[in-house]
Design a protein around this nucleic acid. Structure first.
Lengths: 293, 293
DNA sequence: TGACATGACTGGTCATAACCAGTCCTATTG
DNA sequence: CAATAGGACTGGTTATGACCAGTCATGTCA
């Protein structure tokens, strides 16, 4: 049970509308199944991996969907089939499935099955995902142009949400985000200077340097939850110029506070989006009332 | 086990930092606990209620938090205490807790406990919640002013996301949303006419009529998931006038497609937000990478 | 007095095992 | 031939029980 799980057994039971006769004997032989192959190419689940099993299942399923191994409006194997596929308990499978459902990647129909959710046309962007990873997932190349990096005294609008004394020192990082070298977002970050000594010693002009990667790897700061406020306003002249918008122009603003696993504020981010080049999409699912407006 | 659960037993064990001696005997007597009283005022969980237990626990906890029975940055009873409080299994408690964590209402610290998340100042609004319920939760009175209600042939931008033939008949419902009689959002809905016969026979000038309530109660249509696109643009002259914005003005736009439990499109909603009067806030938690930008 | 081990907690993870209410195909019955 | 009753599935819910890795107060040993 503690050893590697073998996933290379030649699979029977190809997914199809009618596969009764083989699902029947599946239920009997419980030790030699693992049809795998179409949804779990080379295993996927590793019990030596320190990550939780449900996370591994989640990522294996997500990868199968993203790689197109499952057709867009296609049907996933049933939860009980996934149990056999990955050799985990149904609780673990359901944990992974729930995550995917809540993120809108799949949707479930009781009595029928799990289906891949068709995603709307155009960009597929989500709040709270890495700018870099979103870009790559969409086949675009991310980058940034440094506007400014310095240590300043926090104004009240910055110090208060960060639980700092007014005027406390904060690192100010100001960047113009690019997608395929096209400006799409103006991003300004404030980070309490006391938590990130030496952050400005790094060369922030390097186009692929990631703030969150540095926080994670250099300072062991792991953002865990956040609060985001969305609004709109007219772009300033500088913003309009940087985003190549003819004034008067409207921009989508996203202000975000992140907290770490000990509930301390990590940073404050202000984003100014080019409305056409970088709209935001959210996928939602039934958790909650969904009475919506 | 199938009867009502009694919650009116005089509770010992007031929440405190040191309550060792009584939690010890709690663990022994498993039939007569239910200290309750501070978190489950008059029961809360009813096994005759058709709703799932985890949903009831979720709502009981949410109510306790919203009513201020728990201090804002306060500590919740531990999961195992909640098990005894509500007489449900830990899986059920965890299901409810997970929901609250994912919605950002509470946050958890392994090894320590569950804490009520402090919410940012100002409005506390969320995407995907009912306009009416949000208003009430914030102590404001919701309303709307009818702009137009008619059946039209769907233009391509409307027919395509709704999976309809171009020019198919759709109900168009156009309203100006009010908060304390102040205009805050322009809302336009398109609903496939074939699914909602007689919808326009209702008097939509009535200020508290809810589209989603009608869909639910008259047509048994239950929206389950949705896709939302956020952006910004300059307000049209009509929009600026209705929202009392001096042109040129920027507005926050929210376009939303809802699907029912059989994955059929229910409606298309276009919202035009007054940026200052109705910004949106989102609470987020660790599910996913949270690499964010 | 200070460093350290202990133990009682915390939430996080995972397994096994049921039962329910739907859906949908099939085979029996009228 | 059509209506119906089964049965085999689906996801949804809930219980019990167990172990882990963290946190933190306490008490012991140097």
């Amino acid at each position: 049970m503690t050893s590697h799980v073998n996933m290379d057994f030649a699979g029977v039971c190809v997914e199809d509308a009618k596969r009764q006769e083989c699902s029947a004997q599946d239920r009997i032989s419980k030790m030699q199944q693992t049809p795998a192959s179409f949804i779990a190419p080379q295993g996927g689940i590793d019990r030596n991996d320190p990550r939780p099993l449900h996370k591994q299942v989640y990522e294996a399923l997500l990868a199968s969907i993203r790689d197109g191994k499952l057709p867009l409006r296609g049907k996933l194997p049933s939860e009980r089939e996934l149990v056999d596929l990955y050799n985990v308990s149904r609780i673990t499978v359901r944990h992974a499935v729930r995550e995917l459902v809540q993120q809108g990647v799949i949707h479930s129909q009781p009595g029928k099955g799990l289906y891949v959710a068709e995603r709307g046309g155009g960009f597929e962007l989500q709040v709270l995902k890495s700018f870099t990873s979103i870009a790559i997932a969409n086949g675009r190349s991310p980058g940034h142009r440094l506007i400014g990096a310095s240590i300043v005294h926090a104004p009240l609008e910055v110090s208060r949400p960060l639980f700092l004394a007014p005027g406390a020192e904060v690192v100010l990082l100001s960047r113009l985000r690019l997608l395929d070298n096209i400006p799409v977002v103006v991003q300004i970050d404030w980070i309490p200077a006391a938590r990130v000594p030496g952050l400005l010693d790094l060369d922030w002009a390097v186009a692929n340097r990631s703030l969150y990667a540095e926080l994670r790897e250099r300072y062991r700061i792991h953002p865990k939850r956040g609060q985001t406020t969305l609004s709109a306003r007219l772009a300033t002249d500088e913003e309009a110029a940087m985003l190549e918008l003819p004034p008067p122009a409207a921009v989508l603003t996203v202000d975000q506070i992140a907290f770490d696993d000990r509930n301390r504020p990590v940073n404050l981010t202000a984003l100014v989006h080019h409305p056409a080049r970088y709209p935001l999409t959210l996928l939602q699912s039934e958790s909650g009332d969904f009475t919506q407006y």
